[in-house]
Design a protein around this nucleic acid. Structure first.
Lengths: 144, 144
DNA sequence: GAATTTGGTAAGCTTCTCTGACCAATAGTC
DNA sequence: GACTATTGGTCAGAGAAGCTTACCAAATTC
């Protein structure tokens, strides 16, 4: 039975390993005040900044929750809110210098962990995994 | 950039789709009082019952959290606790009739969702996905 | 210009999770 | 057999994260 776990649970195990690995790297680099929930929101901030509503949709939480997490990120100096020039109601969340530095650490950790996975699965297996998950996203991610 | 998401995030998207799909099916079948956290614990209960400590380790939470969730499952009639014959300190958590019925619904939903995925990925892609994730588990799941 | 939609915040509550402290039974050691 | 360490589990308290309901202001639609 141990080989017949459902695909969702298998995905959860892998995701959790990646997330905790990245958080450990962030903590080791002095960004220990970042939480998993904050990271999931921050990971969705686009290069030109994103609106809170966008972040909420993409992370799968309500806009209130997203706003709450952005508040925390702002207080910790990771992001800043600037007016959206195209809409006076909206504000764009974008990375502050501290946030950019943390993102660099996180990216490095991701690459390192993916390399570990890649060594275990082989180049071919890794490519197949990425392709399957990316294709799957077309039907599982409503905010693609 | 939209094709270059890291593998952890891709796994998260798929996992989340599966989880919410199963929870919807459970709700539709009259098990709407089950939460995601309860489900993650319940999904680890073995056929002969499991100890709270085991469930905690496998689900990646503290034993207090696992105990708290098992309390809820017990109050809702999904599981029961019986003494562990091999250790007087321990108790085994196992499914009550209502829990078994819910598991059946969940399994059915899993199978149905996996079939949807399979149609999208093709038989070959699905096999590759499952194999890669299962292999990955060897290095990402410490409680395998 | 009125009505609707959209971006966002405020308040209050529930659920989930943790840390720290503790107890009881088991296992290991002398 | 007594001493200690380990293991299974609970209790108490706190914080994090998420939701619902309600609301405001700007934009859009009619």
């Amino acid at each position: 039975m141990s080989d017949e776990l459902n695909l969702g649970l298998l995905c959860y195990i892998a995701y959790r390993a990646m997330e905790s690995g990245v958080l450990e790297a962030l903590e080791a680099a002095g960004y220990g005040d970042l939480t998993a929930a904050q990271g999931r929101i921050a990971a969705r901030i686009g290069p030109a900044g994103s609106r809170v509503t966008e972040l909420a949709e993409q992370a799968g939480v309500t806009k209130q929750t997203a706003g709450f997490l952005v508040d925390q990120l702002e207080r910790s100096g990771y992001v800043e809110r600037v007016p959206d020039p195209s809409d006076a109601r909206a504000r764009l969340v974008r990375f502050a210098p501290r946030g950019k530095a943390a993102v660099a650490v996180a990216r490095e950790a991701e690459v390192r962990i993916e390399a570990t996975w890649s060594r275990h699965l082989g180049r071919r297996g890794t490519t197949q995994l990425r392709r399957a998950l990316t294709e799957l996203r077309e039907i599982t991610d409503p905010y693609r």
